[in-house]
């Protein structure tokens, strides 16, 4: 028997299945995969590095003078808002990645494995949380250079970012659900934009809602992004925002319960 034949026989002789991995182990394996993919395609980090820089510079210098009279003052107000907007925007890439897995076929293999099924998504989402953290760090650092000063200091920034990451993780379940049920990447992109644009712009990200017409204020006041922006702004600048913070926590848990459940339903019943 040749060397190769022997290796072949050896490799295909019955290998017992080890004990099924724990949920945590399965999820971290998927996280490992997501990290490897970033290593091969570093351009994937474009959205979390370049977006924050462009958004911050663009909106600060475009609106600063008009809205607050000076860019310096506006920066303190708008940075927490743009931070929320940017991270909320890049959450949609989670859905696009998942959609690509389905289109390519590798999703079928995941679904035919005896693993804790949400691991596929939880693993990817936890790496996404790292991406959001990168985006937040870049934006806050650039802001600091431009003159942004958080009144609640470093601790406030950390708490604000932590709350934002939790909300973003929760929001991602909308995209994972859409990623599974929407057929093409293009349609998914369009749909995500359609949801995100009004949500982020018609909020307290850029201006104080009291300057808006009454009917618009009504929408802005119930827009979840407004709560997130107000909560993060409160944490960063040390103003009282406990009501907003609690609201963000409720909204996040609600998003996970509703869209997490729907995602897993469609995951199981994907046709």
């Amino acid at each position: 028997m040749s060397n190769h034949e022997e290796a072949f026989e050896n490799a295909i002789t019955v290998k017992k299945r080890p004990k099924k991995p724990s949920a945590l182990s399965a999820a971290s394996t998927f996280a490992w995969r997501a990290l490897l993919r970033i290593r091969y395609v570093p351009e994937q980090l474009f959205d979390v590095t370049v977006f924050p820089i462009i958004f911050l510079l663009m909106f600060t210098y475009l609106f600063g003078g008009a809205i607050s009279g000076s860019t310096g003052e506006y920066l303190d107000f708008v940075l927490p808002g743009i931070l929320v907007m940017t991270v909320a925007m890049i959450t949609m890439y989670t859905g696009l990645d998942l959609n690509k897995d389905i289109e390519k076929g590798v999703f079928d293999r995941f679904r035919s494995l005896p693993i804790w099924r949400p691991a596929v998504l939880v693993g990817a989402l936890s790496v996404d949380a790292v991406r959001y953290l990168i985006a937040s760090t870049i934006m806050i650092t650039l802001g600091y250079i431009l003159g942004f000063r958080p009144e609640a200091g470093f601790g406030g920034v950390v708490l604000g970012v932590a709350l934002l990451l939790f909300f973003s993780f929760s929001l991602s379940w909308i995209w994972t659900m859409l990623g599974i049920i929407v057929r093409t990447e293009k349609a998914l992109m369009a749909m995500s934009m359609m949801i995100l644009f009004p949500l982020t712009f018609l909020s307290s990200v850029f201006v104080d809602p009291t300057t808006m017409p009454n009917w618009l204020q009504k929408f802005v006041d119930i827009n979840p992004i407004t709560f997130v922006v107000d909560a993060v702004r409160g944490l960063i600048h040390g103003t009282d925002a406990i009501g907003d913070i609690m609201m963000v926590i409720y909204i996040s848990i609600g998003l996970i319960l509703v869209f997490g459940t729907l995602t897993m339903y469609f995951f199981k019943n994907k046709e």
């Binding site: 490897l36 390519k104 590798v106 079928d108 035919s112």
Partner: peptide, 13 residues
């Protein structure tokens, strides 16, 4: 185990 008609591995890895 299933080997699908299309990619059943991750092409990027």
């Amino acid at each position: 185990s299933l080997t699908g008609q299309f990619a059943s591995v991750d092409e990027e890895l």
